[in-house]
Design a protein around this nucleic acid. Structure first.
Lengths: 251, 251
DNA sequence: CGTTTAATTGACATTATTCAACCCGGGTGG
DNA sequence: CCACCCGGGTTGAATAATGTCAATTAAACG
């Protein structure tokens, strides 16, 4: 994949900037803050937890590459994925406020993270306004995304759920320049979709088949082709407002 | 209801303090900030939107009394309540970052709000650290609550869902000193529960009946009596960690 | 009283789950 | 090269959960 900046840190910063075009002028400050506060780069193999079980989530992370799930495993063996984080998303931003999270962070792919020194809350806004703004923006956006997930889980049927999440994934990948045409490249298998949408694997399969029969989308291992984005959006009444991206076309 | 402080503003501040016992020492600063920045007190009748349709959500609010829903109405007539806000909760805290929200705020009861002058983000942390911390805490906590809602909607059956939300409501009311014994006083009717839990009204009714048959909880108009909180928590594997309250017993 | 709103109940339809089987491609070891 | 296995994926049938429709009751209110 082509990247127009050399340093990985600037690439991640660029992801942030593209998403947060509403915030705008803080971009330079953000890059500077990241440069100042980034400690090191961590590699985490696929399948591992980002922060261990009882290890208190101590650090702030910025994803450089890979997909990370925030999920909860229930006693009955069921699992629900609350959300997933992509390059340019923060992890553990609530570690500044809470000692521990009640959810698991799991690397779905191999993942590289920037570990960021977390300044005292007060210092953050005075000395690192760019980072502070980015964190606030990201937290608010994540909240909005989860709220939309609640709507999907509560009041959309399986076809609408699937169509909606495909639209969301496409929009989020586009926001970080990772959509090539109408192909979603993703590590999500059908079981992951099941645990995101709150339905069974079998039903995910059937629902993908319906999308395929109607020539709307085609599931393949490792990628999903969107054949008719118009109808995909209509099907789920997808309205990207909740993502709070600027106008990505505007650059 | 008996309140141990005279000024309404201090009562709302007290709600915040009780919840945010983890933050601790910022209490005095918070009250001072509220005193400085609170403009006026707004009354909103039951059923009305807190901020009108296209009116840009301009202000930060702190709930003094009443219940507020954050919800989304779908074209098909379905409705999903994403979360509900109680006295001591903020409204529109994301208005500092985003122009508009993609969700509706609706007063379920008559509601009184403190309208709070929103300082510039940067000023917030330097001049109003108490408010800043409270806002950050509240935003992170709300996010956690919604994440738990995702788990409920995705992977719990109707009985577990209902049991879980009853535990949550009880815990949240307790945190602001509004639980008297084992009685939940609430404006939620069965349709509201349906729209919170993502199931049909009829099924809410059936599920309440089951709780009643098993002598676990009793639904009555305007209040719900919890007969067996132990079993209610077991039924839904309720773990209050996600609420991030301190130890409420500790005062 | 009559009217309204919410709660309740039963019969039935739909949706989704579970279970069980089978397929298919990519390793791996013989 | 083949036999085998394994993780997904695919399919069908039986079952359970939940939704829809329609009608009834109960309480709340002027």
């Amino acid at each position: 994949m082509r990247v127009n900046t050399d340093l990985p840190l600037e690439r991640a910063g660029e992801f942030l900037r593209r998403k947060m075009s509403t915030i705008g002028p803080l971009h330079d400050s953000l890059i500077r803050d990241l440069r100042t506060l980034t400690r090191d780069r961590v590699e985490i193999p696929a399948g591992r937890m980002v922060v261990g079980e009882e290890e208190r989530c101590p650090q702030l992370y910025l994803i450089d590459s890979g997909w990370v799930f925030r999920s909860r495993g229930l006693a009955s063996g069921r699992r629900q994925i609350v959300n997933f984080a992509l390059p340019g998303d923060f992890l553990c931003s609530d570690s500044i406020l809470f000692k521990a999270s009640s959810f698991d962070l799991i690397a779905r792919t191999g993942v590289t993270l920037f570990r960021i020194e977390t300044p005292i809350l007060a210092d953050m806004f005075t000395h690192h306004p760019g980072l502070a703004a980015a964190l606030a923006w990201a937290a608010a956006q994540e909240e909005s995304v989860i709220a939309e997930r609640v709507v999907s889980l509560g009041r959309r049927d399986s076809l609408e759920k699937l169509a909606h999440i495909l639209c969301e994934i496409a929009a989020r990948l586009e926001a970080i320049g990772r959509m090539t045409g109408d192909i979603i490249e993703t590590p999500l298998n059908q079981e992951d979709f099941a645990d995101i949408l709150g339905i069974s694997v079998i039903h995910v399969n059937r629902t993908f088949r319906k999308l395929s029969e109607d020539k709307i989308a085609e599931y393949r291992k490792g990628q999903i082709e969107l054949l008719d984005r118009q109808r995909l959006a209509e099907l789920s009444a997808f309205d990207p407002d909740y993502l709070h991206f600027g106008h990505p076309s505007g650059g």
